[in-house]
């Protein structure tokens, strides 16, 4: 059972991620505008967008069912549960049961499942295509992601994300090359998970009218948009917590947590910056060719496994 201190940390993480997600996506937008030589919206634009949408009428297509209504609740809720378990502020996972790599991967899969299902349930053909793309992408990315994490787990001797992070920080993993390769493979799959260009297939505006989002309106749309921002932030935090947990609090003391927060904030900002540069320097990949890219991820992850076996 987690101690009271760690329960508070988990709560703090949930609130923090929930509140900061629009800020992070706003940061992406500002960066994008800079790359476009535009003035662009301010950092807080996404908050304004969300509040505006929340005040609007919620319209649903007549063909839609209860999954369509449920998704805007299920998706952010799942992501917040993940946020509670990730080692974000502290080095250990605040709630060990959630902070396990298998639980985390499946919680992400649950969010994706509902996201895709809502697209199918909306009755719109664009949303349907977006949904099938989302699921295909899941099938393509998850093997590489799991393999990379398993290599890290084998190296650390635990499937707990906090333990993996601790092992990496303390240099207990032994095989440096295997760790690095696992990190690269995981970073790549995380990038695909972010749903940014060139892999924003499911929500491609020009191709599919934003896919599963196309039929949502008002508060539901606000929740879905917020969830997508949330997902990006949680994925980045997941990567940081697992492979780069430097500076995170060892014990849940106030000073440790403040330092941990600052460290995470800086790392996340840097990653968003790098992602922004990649995102704005490429065109969207053709969906048909995505599997070629993801095979590369699987290849790197497999290589990490081979290196682990060789003890390198």
């Amino acid at each position: 059972m987690p101690t009271f201190g760690y329960v508070l940390v988990a709560l703090a993480q949930v609130l923090l991620v929930a509140a900061a997600a629009p800020l992070a996506s706003g940061f992406s937008r500002t960066l994008r505008a800079k790359m476009h030589t535009r003035h662009g919206p301010g950092l807080l634009q996404d908050y304004r967008d969300l509040f505006k949408l929340l005040r609007r009428q919620d319209v649903r297509p007549p063909a839609s069912g209860f999954v369509f209504r449920l998704m805007p609740i299920v998706m952010p809720a799942t992501l917040l549960v993940i946020a509670a378990g990730l080692p974000i502020l502290t080095r250990a996972t605040p709630i060990a049961a959630v902070g396990d790599l298998i639980t985390t991967v499946y919680l992400f899969a649950l969010a994706r499942f509902f996201f895709a299902l809502s697209g199918l349930d909306s009755g719109s053909s664009f949303a349907g295509i977006g949904a099938s793309r989302e699921l295909t992408l899941g099938v393509l990315v998850e093997p590489a992601m799991l393999l990379a994490l398993f290599v890290a787990a084998l190296l650390a001797g635990s499937t707990n994300l906090g333990d993996i992070g601790a092992a990496i920080v303390e240099g207990r993993t032994g095989a440096i090359a295997a760790t690095l390769l696992a990190m690269i493979a995981f970073a790549f799959t995380c990038y695909v998970e972010l749903g940014k260009l060139p892999y924003d297939m499911a929500e491609a505006e020009q191709e599919l009218q934003e896919g599963p989002l196309t039929e949502y309106a008002g508060p539901s749309l606000a929740l879905v948009k917020w969830s997508l921002a949330l997902k990006q932030l949680v994925v980045v935090a997941w990567f940081v917590g697992t492979f780069l947990p430097f500076g995170a609090a060892v014990e849940p003391t106030v000073t440790g947590l403040v330092i941990g927060f600052l460290a995470v904030a800086i790392k996340v900002a840097v990653i968003y910056g790098l992602v922004g540069i990649v995102e704005n320097a490429v065109a969207r990949a053709r969906f048909r060719l995505t599997s070629r890219h993801t095979w590369l991820g699987v290849g790197v992850a497999s290589l990490a496994f081979v290196f682990y076996l060789a003890g390198l």
Partner: peptide
């Protein structure tokens, strides 16, 4: 053409 392949940076430039 840039915009439709999702390369908005080129579009704006």
């Amino acid at each position: 053409a840039c915009h439709f392949v999702g390369f908005d940076t080129g579009f704006m430039q």
